[in-house]
């Protein structure tokens, strides 16, 4: 662990902790620390969950980015909440139906995205962007933007803190993150994704089934978007048509800030958490210091560049 400062996610964690301390120092008597940590963990969880999916896609190398995340979130949330809103019966069954439908919509979207990329040979960015218009239109068409309240049990779960005072959402994100860590670092699938990102031609010649790996990756990313949309809608009291908007850039930002290579082939899970917490805390910090929106955006940009530069500078010297 002596090399911890050389880990790609090191500087992101330093920045996140610094932003936390800077905001905390403003709260009267230090009492706000817990509230801030809870808020950061709660809202960071959504960024983590979309970021993990995006990270896998980005790992597959240049040109691989899923731009349909916001629309997928909106579509999955709108349809699953509509389904749950119309159901009667036991709460467990309703929740299960909602969750399964959100995941299934995610999977469907992932398959559709990959079909466009593979069968029609459209570059991923164009394919996912144009498909996202379709998903967004479906969401608008299905419910005209009316908010349907989630079942009470789901609203309570997503806003609750059942274990150790840590938000339930953060536990969910943590468990999923562990799954992604195993997938990326311990499984053959993870190595194949990295291999494709490092050199697709070499990977194919070495016998990596690139089409299948890439299809699975897009499906996983879309399922994560569907799940995040479902949880976010339950958390905030209903699906909104613009609910996913900020997660397009957020999912890419947390991947890059966390030290994963935007050129692909090299990713890490701890960095996603650092990036997500940092992105939340930096806005809280600048808000708390009373800076206007213009200064806030400017400082966020400069700080992100500094972190990425610091992280990549370390790598260059290795």
């Amino acid at each position: 662990m002596t090399m911890i400062h050389k880990a790609p996610w090191f500087w992101a964690w330093v920045a996140a902790i610094a932003a936390f301390c800077a905001t905390w120092s403003l709260s009267a008597g230090g009492a706000g620390g817990t509230a801030l940590a809870v808020a950061a963990l709660t809202f960071g969880s959504f960024s983590v969950m979309t970021g993990l999916g995006q990270m896998l896609v980005i790992t597959m190398g240049p040109g691989n980015t899923d731009l349909s995340i916001p629309a997928t979130m909106t579509l999955a949330a709108t349809l699953s909440l509509k389904l749950m809103g119309g159901m009667t019966g036991s709460a467990g069954l309703i929740v299960l139906a909602g969750l399964v439908s959100a995941l299934a919509i995610g999977a469907g979207v992932g398959v559709a995205n990959f079909a466009l990329i593979r069968l029609l040979r459209i570059p991923p960015i164009i394919a996912t962007l144009s498909a996202s218009f379709l998903y967004q239109s479906l969401a608008i068409w299905s419910n005209r933007g009316l908010r349907i309240k989630p079942p009470q049990v789901l609203a309570d779960f997503t806003t609750g803190r059942a274990l150790l005072g840590i938000p339930n959402l953060a536990w969910v994100a943590l468990i999923i993150s562990f799954g992604f860590w195993v997938l990326l670092n311990q499984s053959g699938f993870g190595r194949r994704i990295s291999a494709i990102g490092q050199n697709p031609r070499a990977a194919r010649l070495a016998g990596v089934p690139t089409a299948r790996v890439s299809a699975t990756t897009y499906v996983i990313c879309a399922i994560m978007a569907g799940l995040t949309g479902f949880l976010l809608a339950c958390f905030s009291g209903g699906a909104a048509l613009n609910m996913g908007a900020e997660f397009l850039l957020m999912s890419i930002a947390v991947t890059v800030i966390g030290g994963s290579s935007i050129a692909g082939g090299n990713s890490n899970v701890p960095g996603i958490w650092a990036g997500a917490l940092f992105m939340y805390l930096i806005v809280s910090m600048l808000n708390s210091y009373g800076l206007g929106a213009g200064v806030r955006l400017l400082s966020t940009g400069i700080i992100i560049i500094a972190i990425v530069a610091a992280a990549s500078g370390r790598k260059a010297r290795l």
Binding site: S236, A240, Y280, S288
Partner: peptide, 14 residues
């Protein structure tokens, strides 16, 4: 409202 909730939760402690 979700963006507002997020932003308010972040500034409230201070």
């Amino acid at each position: 409202q979700d963006v507002a909730q997020k932003a308010v939760a972040g500034i409230l402690p201070s």
